[in-house]
Deep mutational scan, measured.
Amino acid sequence: KLATQLLVDLAEGCHTHHFNSLLDIIEKVMARSLSPPPELEERDVAAYSASLEDVKTAVLGLLVILQTKLYTLPASHATRVYEMLVSHIQLHYKHSYTLPIASSIRLQAFDFLLLLRADSLHRLGLPNKDGVVRFSPYCVCDYMEPERGSEKKTSGPLSPPTGPPGPAPAGPAVRLGSVPYSLLFRVLLQCLKQESDWKVLKLVLGRLPESLRYKVLIFTSPCSVDQLCSALCSMLSGPKTLERLRGAPEGFSRTDLHLAVVPVLTALISYHNYLDKTKQREMVYCLEQGLIHRCASQCVVALSICSVEMPDIIIKALPVLVVKLTHISATASMAVPLLEFLSTLARLPHLYRNFAAEQYASVFAISLPYTNPSKFNQYIVCLAHHVIAMWFIRCRLPFRKDFVPFITKGLRSNVLLSFDDTPEKDSFRARSTSLNERPKSLRIARPPKQGLNNSPPVKEFKESSAAEAFRCRSISVSEHVVRSRIQTSLTSASLGSADENSVAQADDSLKN
């Protein structure tokens, strides 16, 4: 292990032709098999893994070397290190390495390699500790012929580059190093199909959405987006994914797998022009299946994007999809995704031109529960009313008269009656009930004795009459309010007539 670390330190600071010789020695160290011998017992696995620490030291050392060589000349050094790393990870899946030390190597290698970024000039870069990406002036992410390196360097940008540029090249004859992302992409596909350690798979799935944002990485080298989509959909639809995973937390289920895969599918929607129609349908189907899991909100957001990006695919699945959405409970976490999906859909009339009455009724059935102001915040309630109004205007004229009683009944049950079921009123009724029952229970537990009763009969009569009056008032709060309003209006009217009579009498006395 110490000798391997010494080789790594020497290679990191070497800029001459001896660098390749040092890498040859490190490569021989990495070539050791990580498969346990067949006769190895389970209690000896930890000791055997400790004997392979030099392999881990070599791989982690290459990660440090690549981070240094990416910004220094010659660029061919970075290319050689990158290829060695990718080849080593491929061996893991070729020979099915399952030892804990092998999983640790893959975890740290993917953690580093999935941080690679590219700008519009195809320059590769890595983020620093502050998250700012520094791009290399010597390494690009696409394949290029050595003699055409300078031509590639002087080509115009596709868009303004992001991030601070690296140091300027030493001279005009500098050759750019090619670090094609397709090599890593193929290893990522192998990981999605064969990885057995949940920690490694979770890391890859968590980092892929951010990497897919940099389309330069994908399009400048032959990366098959179709295969990526197929691998992701197979993970969700195939039963073998959960069987092969180990190291998963207790209670791990298909729902947890959906939570990890759906963000990658959402990021892949922007590549729909490069996906086969069959793959697009598979993607939409997987998102529909996710509606029954805890990732339902993410799936609804993804389907909203699909309705804009892939209208030809979503239009066929939309009638059944809208009916499925009615089975989702009206909760605060689902309110905004569902209502925004319906609001977006209302502005795309070509998608729902074939809707029948059942689909329009489903839209109103989804939106009406969110009009309850005692359960949802003001934004959700306003958005629900907006969706109902928009869809009522957009639905066909023959359907409107049939939906009017349905909508008014839903609004009455969710908006008007919600004020009668407020917690304050319920607590008031509970308190009044307890007050009504309390005197009775006290009389049963403690019967009054005439000799020891010091309270006069008049006081008892007053208290009983007050309790009886309170019971009468607490029967119905709404009736009490109505009666008080009527009494107030009658009182004001009587006072007004009394004032008029007094004024008339005063005038008569003055005349006399």
Rank of each mutant, 00 (worst) to 15 (best):
Q194H: 10
G163R: 11
C229P: 01
K152A: 13
E210P: 02
E83M: 11
L201Y: 01
L116M: 14
L121S: 09
V140H: 08
P164M: 12
T57H: 07
V132L: 09
V225C: 06
L99G: 06
I89D: 00
G61R: 01
S120K: 13
R106P: 00
V133G: 04
L63C: 12
Y82P: 02
L212T: 01
S51G: 12
S87K: 06
V86R: 01
C141R: 02
M144P: 10
P160L: 12
G166A: 12
S237M: 12
T241H: 07
M84S: 08
R106Y: 00
Y143M: 07
P160K: 14
V140S: 06
L203W: 04
H122M: 03
L232R: 00
T98A: 09
V225P: 05
V55T: 05
R117F: 01
T79R: 12
L205A: 01
I89R: 01
I89T: 02
L63T: 12
T241D: 05
E53P: 02
L85Y: 00
S155K: 10
S237E: 12
L126K: 04
L192E: 00
R117A: 03
D197P: 01
V225Y: 03
V64F: 07
L205N: 00
L184G: 05
C191V: 04
H77I: 01
I89V: 07
L203Y: 05
R134M: 05
T57G: 05
H88A: 02
T162Q: 13
R246K: 13
S221Q: 03
L85H: 00
P160H: 13
D142C: 03
L232S: 00
P161Y: 12
Y214I: 04
K153D: 12
A102Y: 03
Y97I: 02
Q190H: 08
G61Q: 01
G251V: 04
E53N: 05
F252D: 03
K129W: 11
P160N: 13
D54C: 06
E243C: 07
S76D: 11
S234R: 07
E195S: 00
T68D: 06
A118M: 02
Y93G: 00
T154N: 11
S96K: 09
R186P: 06
K153Q: 07
K240G: 13
P161K: 11
R106V: 01
I89S: 00
A58E: 01
P165N: 09
G125R: 01
T154R: 11
Y181F: 10
K215G: 03
Q190E: 11
S51Y: 06
L52Q: 11
A248H: 08
A58N: 00
S76Y: 10
L236M: 10
L63F: 11
E243L: 09
F135M: 05
R244P: 02
M144F: 12
L91E: 10
V225R: 01
S211N: 09
G166Q: 14
R213E: 05
A102W: 02
S221G: 03
P164V: 12
E147G: 12
S224F: 06
K56N: 07
S150P: 13
K129Q: 12
D142L: 03
Q190W: 05
K153W: 10
A78P: 03
S49K: 03
T57A: 09
Y214L: 04
L188S: 03
K94Y: 13
Q190D: 10
L121E: 13
V132A: 09
L115W: 07
E83D: 07
K94E: 13
P100I: 01
S196Q: 08
G177W: 05
S104E: 13
K129R: 11
V133R: 04
K202R: 10
T220S: 09
H77D: 06
T154Q: 11
L124Y: 04
M235L: 11
T98L: 07
R213F: 05
L228C: 02
D226R: 04
Q190C: 09
E243N: 08
V204L: 02
S96D: 13
M84A: 08
V216W: 04
G125W: 02
S178G: 13
K199V: 13
L62N: 02
G177P: 04
S159G: 13
Q67H: 07
H88E: 01
C233A: 04
G163I: 12
V204T: 02
F252I: 11
L184V: 09
S224W: 04
L176P: 13
E195G: 00
V59N: 02
S87L: 07
R134C: 06
Y143P: 08
L184E: 01
V179H: 02
T220L: 02
E53A: 09
G247L: 05
V59A: 12
E147F: 12
T241Y: 10
S76F: 06
S224P: 08
L63A: 09
D130A: 11
I105Q: 00
R213Y: 05
P239R: 10
S221R: 02
C141S: 07
P180T: 04
L73H: 13
C191P: 00
T98E: 09
H77Y: 04
R246Q: 09
D226L: 02
H92G: 01
C191S: 04
